[in-house]
């Protein structure tokens, strides 16, 4: 198990409820999305959600990348956590898609995590992070 968090605020303590449970009692502030669940159903509630956990049941299942971006693009500012089969070589892409915390079922070497996150000093395209795409650097 390894947990990494890239936020300055206090970690949210309330346990995350399932999407179905959340939609029935939307006063919860933490929700968990399983792979394949429609992130857009959370859009009406983003203002008061403090934690959204997106499950990666298998590292090859990349649906969570799209879910994360959809939530960030809709204005979600709370904690966005990738949970499950989270491997070092996914982290850079996950950060770019808006994840700011990780709960991996594996033990990840912190030095390798840092190296993976800092490997690329530039990116070719916009995503939901603050990275400036190369085309913008080229044209000032």
């Amino acid at each position: 198990m390894a947990n990494f968090r890239y936020r300055d605020d206090q970690p949210h303590e309330e346990p995350a409820v399932t999407l179905d449970a959340f939609l029935e009692q939307p006063d919860a502030t933490a929700v968990r999305l399983e792979a394949g669940e429609d992130a857009r159903r959370l859009i009406p509630f983003l203002g008061r959600l403090q934690l959204i956990e997106i499950s990666f049941p298998r590292f090859r299942d990349g649906r969570g990348f799209s879910s994360a971006r959809i939530l960030r693009e809709a204005g979600y500012e709370g904690e966005l956590r990738a949970e499950g089969d989270v491997l070092i070589d996914l982290l850079f892409f996950m950060r770019r898609c808006g994840f700011d915390s990780f709960s991996s079922q594996h033990s990840l070497n912190p030095a390798d995590v840092e190296a993976a996150l800092n490997r690329y000093s530039n990116v070719y395209q916009d995503a939901t992070d603050a990275a400036v795409p190369i085309w913008k650097l080229r044209h000032g």
């Binding site: 990349g62 990348f65 996950m94 898609c97 990116v123 070719y124």
Partner: peptide, 14 residues
């Protein structure tokens, strides 16, 4: 090519 190289959302496609 550039736009799709290391695309963060689409690097673990089906």
């Amino acid at each position: 090519r550039q736009a799709t190289t290391f695309h963060p959302e689409f690097s673990y496609l089906p």
